[in-house]
């Protein structure tokens, strides 16, 4: 089972753990929850420390503030972290991206997004779910990366419709091109702010895949 992707799930709701295991079992590629627990300790101790991807709930029991510190430590240790949270505000999403999370998913976004995001994260490929796209399109901070008009459009339409087909139809693009635009935006963000291994890996992989060229940087 060399190709199997292993995941550590940090979430304090047992129902979530069961749900995630179910979703992974039905995934098109082999995905397995290697470890799960209610605190980030799970991700540091065997067997959770060797998993390819960490699915991380920002809001853990007994904590009143989002666990940005824990997220930063995991990212600095070179882990691929998917933030999976109840929080739906753009500031949280942007903070997580800047800290180096590979992607940001809200719990209203279902199985498809989590599975796709996990597969992408394990391979250092970008994945931008709608909630994150919305946060990026509403980002007004002064250090936001410069986006083209088309990229802005794709971001906002993807957030609104949650459907690549609808976005493609509206903007007269192919669904594949829609994904390319989303990926490019994600890479611009990977190339900005605080340096992290996960960001560098995203950019390196995108160059290998021919998604961007070295000149674009």
């Amino acid at each position: 089972m060399a190709d199997e992707i292993t995941v550590t799930v940090v979430d304090d709701h047992p129902a979530m753990l069961v749900g995630i295991e179910q979703w992974y079992a039905a995934a098109p590629e082999p995905l397995r929850v290697a470890a799960s627990g209610a605190t980030s300790k799970t991700a540091w101790l065997p067997p959770g420390d060797a998993a390819d991807v960490v699915v991380f709930d920002l809001q853990l029991a007994g904590q009143t503030t989002p666990a940005f510190g824990e997220l930063r430590r995991l990212v600095d240790a070179g882990r691929n972290v998917i933030v999976y949270t109840m929080r739906d505000d753009e500031q949280t999403a942007l903070t997580c991206l800047d800290l180096g999370a590979v992607t940001f998913l809200t719990k209203t976004e279902g199985a498809d997004h989590l599975v796709s995001a996990t597969l992408a994260a394990a391979r250092d490929r970008p994945y931008t779910p709608p909630a994150l796209a919305g946060a990026l399109s509403a980002n007004t901070s002064s250090d936001r990366p410069k986006l083209s008009i088309r990229e802005e459009e794709v971001l906002v339409e993807w957030f609104q419709s949650e459907s690549r087909d609808l976005v493609a139809q509206r903007l007269n693009l192919s669904p594949k091109t829609v994904t390319t635009y989303l990926d490019r935006v994600r890479l611009k963000y990977a190339n900005a702010g605080r340096p992290a291994r996960s960001k560098a890996a995203l950019v390196a992989r995108a160059i290998q895949d021919g998604l961007i060229s070295v000149d674009d940087l």
Partner: peptide
């Protein structure tokens, strides 16, 4: 799905 997006350039209300 109803969304509201507000940026300095535009206000959008959308329903799918």
């Amino acid at each position: 799905r109803a969304t509201v997006v507000r940026t300095p350039a535009a206000v959008r209300v959308s329903v799918v």
